[in-house]
Amino acid sequence: LMFRRAVSNLLSNALDHATVGSDVELRTYQAEGYVVVEVTNKGQPIPPEHVEKIFDRFYRLNASRQGSAKNTGLGLAIVKSIMESHRGKVDVMSQRDNTTFALYFPRLA
């Protein structure tokens, strides 16, 4: 249930921020002791000064969304909490017109 919530939050964000008519990609693979789930969208990159803050509770990149009931600034904080509870981690890479969020779940031995 928590896995679905984390992926759902990332997919929802990707769809909200993707360039109209572009694809959102969902990819899984194994790497260095982890099973990785990636969600990638094409669109405006996240400015570097915001990357570390986006996982903070109630942090919103776009201040013009302050009145929106849909965007509470909790989605990525929830994703981070879920990953920590699974002893995993979440990472983001955003440059040019691609943003990728990666969920790293530790592989069982």
Rank of each mutant, 00 (worst) to 15 (best):
V79S: 06
L76T: 02
I54F: 03
R27E: 15
V7G: 03
N9K: 05
F55M: 11
G21E: 10
N41W: 03
H86D: 10
F58W: 03
E49Y: 04
G75M: 01
L11Q: 02
T99A: 02
P47R: 08
D97G: 03
R65T: 09
N98D: 11
K89P: 01
G73Y: 04
F101L: 11
R27W: 07
V24P: 05
I54L: 11
L103T: 05
K89H: 13
E32C: 09
I46K: 02
N41P: 06
T100H: 05
L15M: 11
V51M: 12
K80M: 04
L10N: 07
T19N: 09
P106S: 13
S85M: 14
R5Y: 05
A102L: 08
Q30P: 00
M93E: 15
V7T: 09
Q30F: 13
P47L: 09
V90F: 03
D16G: 07
L108H: 13
G33W: 08
A77W: 06
D91H: 11
N62S: 08
G67T: 00
I54M: 11
A18W: 01
L74M: 11
S12Q: 13
M93P: 00
E32T: 13
R27M: 13
D97W: 02
L61M: 09
Q66S: 13
D23N: 00
R87G: 11
V36W: 08
H17T: 04
E38P: 01
I46P: 00
V37R: 04
F3A: 10
H50L: 10
V7Q: 04
L108C: 07
T40R: 08
L108N: 12
A77R: 03
L11S: 03
E52F: 04
E38T: 05
S22Y: 03
L108K: 12
Y34D: 15
V7P: 03
L108G: 12
V51E: 14
M2E: 08
R60P: 00
Y34E: 14
V35D: 08
R5D: 07
N13T: 08
S12A: 13
R57T: 07
D91R: 11
R87N: 15
R65I: 01
Y59Q: 06
Q66E: 12
L61D: 03
S64L: 07
L76A: 04
A18S: 14
S85I: 05
F3G: 03
V51L: 13
L11C: 07
G33S: 10
T100V: 12
P106F: 13
F55C: 08
G73C: 10
R65G: 06
V7H: 02
K42E: 08
L11T: 05
F101I: 08
T100F: 06
R4P: 06
T19I: 06
N41A: 05
V37L: 11
F105Y: 15
R57D: 11
P48S: 12
N41Q: 05
R65A: 10
Y59A: 07
F101P: 04
G21V: 07
M2L: 06
R60D: 01
G67K: 01
R96D: 15
Q44P: 00
D56I: 04
A63C: 00
Y34I: 08
T28P: 01
S22T: 12
E38W: 02
S81N: 14
S22R: 07
G21K: 09
D56Y: 08
A14I: 00
A102G: 09
H86N: 14
T99D: 01
T100Q: 09
V51Q: 14
R107G: 09
P45R: 01
M93K: 15
V35H: 12
T28W: 03
R57C: 02
M2T: 00
T19P: 00
